[in-house]
């Protein structure tokens, strides 16, 4: 505070035409506060504009369109609950919901599991940043590139993975071409792409756990596994919950890897919800119904997220 006063008096001496320094400064304070409000709104204006025009308005419009018949070229016609009735009767919608759930469960369980193990291994071995860097390589490339290279590697005739499988079992696996393998293959791609990113997130969480806790554990004679179960896991819970939520939200909206590799096939076996919505909107130009499905997807995501956060909070008591 003293230095500030000195600075200000120096400024007063330097400052141009200041006849009565102390009152001038006192007036300056409130004056700049008044300016703040004006300037603040100016600085926030672009963000507010973007929020209003490209987020809030489209969102409300999306809710409105969910209750209309809308085919893009003519204006929407209000149909009340007709779309919702259609949704309930639409077997393909429920099928795609099931496919999405299957994909999400596989991706999240496998993805978070492998990421957790990898993060712990990286942490316990004290591996340097370069290795963690290599791990996030798949995060840097697009879903399209991921889907292309894996479609090639999993190709039934020429793909290197199937070369290996044929060499071992004698016959190739139609990864993207078979009902039973399509979704697990897509989930594997998703895990490959996101594993390193998740592992780095979890690793950062591990670094916040003080080393002294493990030393205490070791002195008490706890094994690696015991320390992992009763020290690492509980302390890591908040970040694990965050990683799970991020992955659920991300994989529920999966689209690009599906569209490039299977297009929802064979025979709808990998028709995830986002793929179906896209097909309804841009294949059949049924925008009203597509909006209804988007709305339902959104509501499901909100429910799942809140449930998970609740569970996380319920678990916090045993971590402290």
């Amino acid at each position: 505070m003293v230095t500030t006063l000195q600075d200000s008096s120096a400024q007063v001496v330097r400052g141009p035409a200041t006849t009565a320094p102390p009152p001038k400064r006192r007036r300056k304070g409130p004056a700049s506060r008044r300016n703040d409000t004006w300037v603040a709104w100016l600085l926030v204006a672009p963000a507010l504009l973007g929020f209003g025009v490209f987020f809030a308005y489209p969102m409300l419009r999306g809710v409105y369109l969910s209750f209309t018949e809308f085919h893009i070229l003519s204006p929407p016609v209000w149909t009340g609950l007709e779309n919702i009735q259609e949704l309930i009767d639409d077997g393909r919608f429920w099928h795609s919901l099931g496919v999405t759930a299957y994909f999400v469960v596989l991706s999240v369980v496998l993805g978070v599991g492998v990421s957790l193990v990898t993060a712990v291994v990286l942490h316990r071995l004290g591996v340097n940043t370069t290795v963690r860097g290599l791990m996030i390589l798949p995060f840097l490339i697009s879903g399209v590139v991921t889907a292309l290279v894996w479609t090639w590697m999993l190709d039934p005739q020429l793909g290197i993975v199937n070369q290996l499988i044929t060499w071992v079992t004698g016959e190739p696996i139609m990864f993207f071409g078979s009902d039973s393998w399509a979704v697990p293959s897509l989930a594997a791609l998703n895990v490959w792409k996101s594993m390193g990113y998740n592992a780095v997130l979890i690793f950062a969480g591990l670094q916040t756990i003080p080393a002294t806790i493990y030393e205490a554990g070791r002195i008490d004679g706890a094994s690696e596994w015991q320390m992992f179960r009763s020290l690492t896991l509980p302390l890591l819970r908040p970040i694990l919950v965050m990683v799970v939520i991020l992955n659920v939200i991300g994989s529920t909206q999966v689209f690009d890897i599906v569209q490039v590799s299977t297009k929802g096939g064979p025979a709808d076996a990998s028709l995830v919800l986002q793929m179906y919505i896209y097909d309804k909107a841009f294949g059949q130009f049924d925008f009203g119904y597509a909006a209804t499905m988007s709305l339902s997807l959104f509501l499901m995501l909100v429910t799942v997220t809140f449930t998970q956060m609740r569970m996380a909070r319920a678990g916090e008591s045993d971590t402290s």
Binding site: F51, P58, G62, L65, Q274, I277, F287, A291, L301
Partner: peptide, 20 residues
Amino acid sequence: VLLTALMVPSVFTLLPNFVL
């Protein structure tokens, strides 16, 4: 108010934004 946008997945605003 601005932070509420974090809660809404992009999938929900994509179609209406296309129409816009």
